[in-house]
Design a protein around this nucleic acid. Structure first.
Length: 884
DNA sequence: CGATCCCGCCACATT
DNA sequence: AATGTGGCGGGATCG
């Protein structure tokens, strides 16, 4: 019946789209029903597109219909098809011929026929899974769209997912390059590694879920955070193909989501992932939890992705029965084990990467950081992917585009950036709003920085961290001492003192894209390290590469650099580490991610130098942990890491241990006086982002100027908590504390902190502690306490205040997740010598403290400056700006 | 009625 | 300004 009807009906649906659609081809004959042949079909629409039409026809003829049906059914669910349709269809087929059939089908408006999964199959059918390396197949979106009879929009959906797996890469405007599955295993391997870092725990957690929630949660989050940073996501995508394009905008979604989604499967023991869990995990930044609509949207996207993956034969739909009942889920049916490398056929440039997969991942990360252009380059090398990708936007952009700003920045990863950006944006806004008030802005404003995409700066050891850019500074963190001198290298650049505004001597700033972390640590280091050496093998190289790629100014970010000390970098072992790692070195700042879990030994550090950062996860970990994050167990105090001593760390930290290792590290660090400064973390993973600032340093430490916004200054830490949903923020103003050196007085005090988070706030809870201390575990109650005090101390924008007040407890985070912040305080207690530290820091960090004078003043200044800066410039700036 | 997810508006990026 | 991209979510369809 359909058929017939169809014909008549045909017009209905088909009509619109149709143009291309199969219908034409097939459908063509609508009326004619039965009989005859095909040809008619064409006709229906003589179409405009003749050329394509033909193709279409061919295509359709070739397969689609039949296949589709079958496939669909099979793929998706055997169920549906079975009876009903088949029969009829078959009959029809038999009976009539194609034409009829076709028509029928066409007609069938059935949604299924138009499904993305089917469309994807058709798409895939057009290209060989393993094309010869020599031949490159280019895909024209318009052409394909017309051939397949769909709107171009739909093709984007498919291509974006394929791109995330590197099956295709964008070459140019409407052009994609088909790579086939040659690199698929490598890509999956990379994702798996990345996923291990980022999601393993989460998945485990969710899968087991329940009980442990909090505890685990907390941990997880932490982990997550790190993960996120690392996150490969970017890598891929960016590196490859899209990357270019990717950076920009929002790429976030589909491509990244697709990679994350795949990661979840690869990390899952059961290889089964339910949509709701995936959606929860993938909703990162968001603040809030809730947001039902957001969840819904996420799920929708996941369906889109799942359809494509299903067509690729990587997953299949299944149902899992849980307590509540049966839930839809997808099971990974693709390869699970990945041999070592892969090949890449690509040939091209790839060669370069000798790096093992893991490393690659790291690379990717790095790349992200890099400026757009640079990125490209790297990327290209990275996977072997072609540079082509880059083509898109990036390339062009360089010259003028605003984005370019980034250059200055240096590092950044795209995604990560984007996240950051988002956060930043949010923050900014808030801040701005809030701040607008004269209130203040402190010199440090972190937020703003973020905002820009560029924000990242890295300190690379070698590189520069500080880079500085001229003007715009990026963020700088205070480092401890200055570093410049000692250090060598680049540091000088950093120095801010001199001119650069920005920088601070050592400070480094990192941005982690992927995850979203930002950490800033300042260490004092005097000397930090600089170093950087790249000794480290891979890492070093990478870093180097990156650096190379990037202009000096740029720093890198993420990753890569490891510290390298000559000594030993450790790292490596873990992939994660690798990835993360970055380098560090140098500097001072380290960021750390808190993750307990991982910890790898990365070492980072170089002894002498300080590595800073290691960006590695571990590093992060460490640092954070120490300082801020409480982590699970720990509580330890926080110590800052920073200091020179960091070197010690270099040793490695622990490998994975969770707590212990870290802790000691921490301790060590702690011992060290300096602290780390702080971090900003945005976690990707789950949820929200975290900001951490270590208070210790507080006072001066951090400031970022954002462009315009004034941002926060923070001496504190903000930690989001764990939960996916929310983010809590915590700030502790350390500053004030006696310890603090006070840098310029300004800081002192609460002043420094200004957060405007209104936006954030809303959802998230914010905590502010004046001191740094927070109790770790914090029970709600404590929190409450903290908050209050906090308020006073800080200058919160009204909003914040409110939020603080209000939120808190409620927020899940607080409650549930211990996440926390806890430890922060310790540092305080710890002996940090502020002064000792400080001095250096201060200055460096702050730049002229004197100038700073009042906090307020500073703020203002900065604010202005910042604001003034062109957008391009925006980046992070740190105090540098304020010079006076 | 919940699970899917097509469709296409429209914002943003690039040309 | 035109065009390419792609986020996003209303609302239709499926089961």
């Amino acid at each position: 019946e359909n058929i017939f009807d169809r014909s008549r009906m045909a017009p209905r649906t088909p009509i619109k789209n149709e143009p291309v659609d199969l219908s034409k081809q097939k459908g063509c004959t609508p009326e004619r029903n039965p009989i005859t042949p095909v040809k008619l079909v064409d006709r229906p629409q003589p179409d405009p597109w003749t050329p394509t039409a033909n193709l279409k026809m061919l295509v359709s003829a070739a397969s689609p219909d039949m296949r589709d049906r079958e496939k669909k059914k099979e793929l998706f669910r055997p169920i549906e098809n079975s009876e009903q349709s088949d029969t009829p269809d078959l009959l029809q087929y038999d009976m009539v011929d194609d034409s009829t059939v076709d028509e029928f089908e066409k007609q069938r408006p059935s949604r299924k026929q138009k499904s993305l999964g089917l469309l994807c199959q058709k798409f895939l059918a057009r290209y060989p899974s393993y094309p010869l390396s020599t031949e490159k197949t280019t895909i024209s979106l318009d052409e394909v769209a017309s051939i397949l009879g769909v709107e171009r929009r739909r093709i984007y959906d498919i291509v974006n997912v394929l791109e995330s797996l590197h099956l295709v890469s964008r070459v140019a405007k409407n052009q994609y390059c088909w790579h086939g599955r040659h690199n698929l295993s490598q890509t999956l391997k990379t994702l798996q590694e990345a996923g291990e870092l980022q999601y393993r725990e989460l998945m485990t957690f969710f899968q087991h879920k329940e009980q442990d929630l909090e505890y685990k949660f907390g941990e997880r989050k932490k982990e997550t955070i790190p993960d996120s940073q690392d996150r490969p996501l970017l890598d891929f995508s960016e590196p490859d193909c899209t990357s270019a394009s990717a950076n920009s905008r929002k790429d976030k979604s589909l491509r990244i989501m697709s990679q994350k989604f795949v990661m979840l499967f690869l990390v899952s023991k059961t290889k089964i992932v339910t949509l709701d869990i995936a959606a929860k995990i993938l909703i990162e930044e968001t603040q809030d939890t809730v947001d039902h609509s957001k969840f819904k949207t996420k799920v929708r996207r996941l369906y889109d992705i799942a359809n494509v993956l299903t067509s690729l034969g990587l997953i299949k739909k299944v149902y899992v029965t849980e307590e509540r009942g049966r839930k839809p889920a997808f099971k990974w049916i693709g390869p699970v084990e990945f041999p070592g490398k892969t090949d890449e056929l690509r040939g091209n440039s790839p060669t370069s990467d000798p790096l093992p997969g893991t490393q690659r991942g790291a690379c990717a990360l790095y790349q992200r950081c890099a400026t757009g252009k640079e990125r490209f380059t790297r990327h290209a090398s990275f996977n072997g992917m072609q540079p082509c990708e880059g083509s898109r936007r990036k390339v062009s952009s360089e010259p003028n585009s605003p984005r370019q700003e980034r250059q200055a920045c240096i590092v950044n990863s795209d995604e990560y950036c984007s996240k950051m950006i988002n956060l930043a944006a949010v923050c900014r806004q808030k801040i701005e709003e809030d701040t607008r008030n004269p209130s203040t802005t402190s010199p440090l404003s972190v937020l703003p920085v973020l905002g820009d995409s560029d924000f990242c700066v890295n300190p690379l050891p070698q590189t520069v961290f500080p880079v500085v850019q001229a003007d715009v500074p990026s963020l700088s963190l205070p480092n401890g001492i200055s570093s410049q001198a000692p250090h060598t290298s680049t540091p000088a650049a950093s120095k801010t003192e001199n001119g650069k505004p920005t920088l601070l001597p050592n400070q480094s700033f990192l941005c982690f894209p992927s995850s979203s972390l930002f950490m800033l640590c300042g260490s004092l280091q005097e000397n930090n390290l600089r170093e950087t050496l790249p000794t480290t093998g891979d890492v070093g190289n990478r870093s180097a590469e990156a650096q190379a790629a990037i202009p000096p100014t740029v720093c890198q970010k993420r990753s890569s650099h490891k510290c390298t000390s000559p000594s030993a970098p450790v790292d490596d072992e873990e992939p994660a580490a690798k990835k993360q790692t970055m380098e560090q070195c140098d500097l001072p700042l380290s960021l750390v991610v808190p993750k307990k879990p991982f910890e790898s030994p990365k070492a980072e550090s170089t002894p002498g130098s300080g590595c800073t950062s290691a960006v590695h996860l571990e590093a992060f970990h460490l640092d954070l942990t120490s300082p801020a994050v409480p982590e699970a167990s720990s509580k330890e105090s926080i110590k800052p890491l920073g200091s020179q001593e960091q070197e010690k760390r270099s040793q490695n930290k622990d490998p994975d241990e969770p707590s212990p290792g870290k802790e000691h590290i921490c301790k060590e660090n702690a011992s060290q006086p300096f602290l780390p400064q702080y971090l900003y973390v945005q976690p990707t993973g789950l949820s929200s982002f975290n900001f951490l600032f270590s208070a210790n340093q507080a006072p001066g430490a951090i400031s970022l100027a954002a462009n315009q916004l004034p941002s926060l200054s923070v001496p504190c830490v903000v930690v989001p908590s764990a939960a996916l949903t929310s983010f809590p923020l915590v700030c502790s103003p350390t500053i004030t504390s006696p310890l603090s050196p006070v840098p310029d007085g300004s800081f002192s005090a609460a002043a420094s902190v200004n957060l405007s988070m209104s936006s954030l706030a809303s959802t998230t809870p914010v905590f502010v502690g004046t001191t740094a201390v927070v109790t770790p575990k914090v029970s709600p109650a404590p929190l409450g306490d903290l908050q209050q005090p906090a308020h006073p101390a800080l200058h919160l924008s009204p909003v914040l205040a409110r939020s603080c007040g209000a939120v808190k407890l409620d927020s899940p985070v607080c409650m549930g997740h211990p996440v926390t912040l806890l430890k922060l305080q310790q540092p305080l207690s710890t002996p940090l010598t502020p002064k000792s530290i400080r001095p250096a820091c201060h200055e460096a960090f702050f730049k002229t403290p004197g100038s700073l004078g009042d906090p307020v003043t500073w703020k203002k200044n900065e604010g202005n400056q910042t604001r003034n800066a062109s957008s391009a410039q925006r980046r992070l700036e740190i105090s540098s700006t304020s010079p006076d």
